[in-house]
Design a protein around this nucleic acid. Sequence first.
DNA 1: AACGATATCTGACTAAAGTCAGATATATGC
DNA 2: GCATATATCTGACTTTAGTCAGATATCGTT
Lengths: 290, 290
Amino acid sequence: MLDPVSRVRRFNRAVTSAVGALDTSFLGRGRPLGAARVLNAIGHGRADVGEIRDYLGLDSGLMSRLLRSLEDEELIETTAHENDARRRIAKLTAAGKREFNAYEAISNRQAKDFLAHHSQREALLAAMDLIASALGRDATALHEMDPRSDEARYCLGEYYAELARRFKQGFDVKLSRDPDAKDMVRPRGSFIVAMSDGLPLGCVGLKGTSAEYAEIKRLWVAPAARGLGLGRRLMDAAEHAARELGIVLLRLDTNSALAEAGQLYRRTGWTEIPRFNDDPYPDLFFEKRL
Amino acid sequence: MLDPVSRVRRFNRAVTSAVGALDTSFLGRGRPLGAARVLNAIGHGRADVGEIRDYLGLDSGLMSRLLRSLEDEELIETTAHENDARRRIAKLTAAGKREFNAYEAISNRQAKDFLAHHSQREALLAAMDLIASALGRDATALHEMDPRSDEARYCLGEYYAELARRFKQGFDVKLSRDPDAKDMVRPRGSFIVAMSDGLPLGCVGLKGTSAEYAEIKRLWVAPAARGLGLGRRLMDAAEHAARELGIVLLRLDTNSALAEAGQLYRRTGWTEIPRFNDDPYPDLFFEKRL
DNA sequence: AACGATATCTGACTAAAGTCAGATATATGC
DNA sequence: GCATATATCTGACTTTAGTCAGATATCGTT
């Protein structure tokens, strides 16, 4: 019925009015929106005045005045940056924290109300994740993390669940050569998680071995982030880490049921090689020389 | 990883900045946002000044001044309403149409760019439809329409395609007792389409027969709008139309593969009855006395 | 014709947002 | 130590948005 462009525009209209409603509800605390936005940025952990100014896109004069008004209300305190006294660091006072929590409560209540009014919760949340990831694609950052961190374990859990769905014979992590976490931290290896605004969207492990090669393991991209080139970015980061560690040969195993992954490897300079382990799940093996 | 409320809030943040970007790009045409919004409302066919004011949520004084500034630019003309000289009707001039088209081009380009940057087009569009429908749920309006209209035919096409997917044996409309369109227009029957901001989201037909009952046919709700109570609203509207037409007994047939539909009927006062036709697809039959 | 209701307009305001040219203090490189 | 760059602040503005109390014209009803 509607062409794709009209559908995107319909979405924009729907969302514009919803965003407007959120803004208006913030006005209920008797503070202009600009000041509320600065207070919330600080509450969410942004401390550097310049960073807040960039994030909110404000003129430096305006920013300065907004900070002053929040200081007059005794909601924030500013101090000089310890290494650079030109820069200012803003921090919530106790009263500021209370006020910030009140804003948080408004936001949480609105989100909760929205969810409560819709019986399709999971479908709706999945759609929101997908769109937020697509819009925030440029904001997706890769972080090297311990594979035992919450974020990494969340990714691995999702990864295993997906393998169980996609492999005809299911998937049991215990049957697979589960890479020891210690092989995926420096200096033997690395583990990289893609984070977008607090949500882990993908991961990849670089596992050091006792052989002359290192292995790429656990490449996973959240359904909400597929098609955005994140797999490619994760692989590039893993290769980069390998180079830093002086690794010259990489190997990986995969399964032909994971078609997207196979395509990615072929497109990025990997060559198929014969089986090099006895893991029961993989049926495709690749190698890349750095 | 993230709880549902955080996921909704992540979506809100992502979308707020995207909406902000759209607004800023509108400023490129050298007109304040308020005036641009009024011009666009008129361009999109809203003519009645009061209606525009309600739609944009403006104060009457502000609205009046915005109209005046657009008139000064010779982008619009206003005339009195032909039946009520208190009301004013706004219309684009030739220059106004050019200007409106320029705004349209900005919006279209942004939507196109967004789509061009994402390979997951269909998934993204489906997610946008779902969210736009959920947000605009209150704005979904039911319209009685000719079953041969574009909107109705779009719904029926989607309905048949879905039956073909969900029935084990497929679905061929020719094998089914395809209700004659004439039986679904007044005074014999009715056909109702749910429209949300230009997108048809569901339909239902009330088909007059030569027997002592009328039939409910073709109840369909778009995947993007399920769980919002639209099926219920459509059925209520069909019953309302039936009462207006003096119909006292309704029947319908359905298939047990369409579980949601069966549940809806049972919950809303329909009673199961024996087979009353020889259509090959249905295996469940209901009746309701008005 | 008179009344109250309705739609829009005008004038007089206020608040918020945004702009811009310096001023001030500090950092960095030579 | 000095010139230059950087980060923030201050003062003096403009623009936009929004509010509110009447004024004006018209409508519908009696």
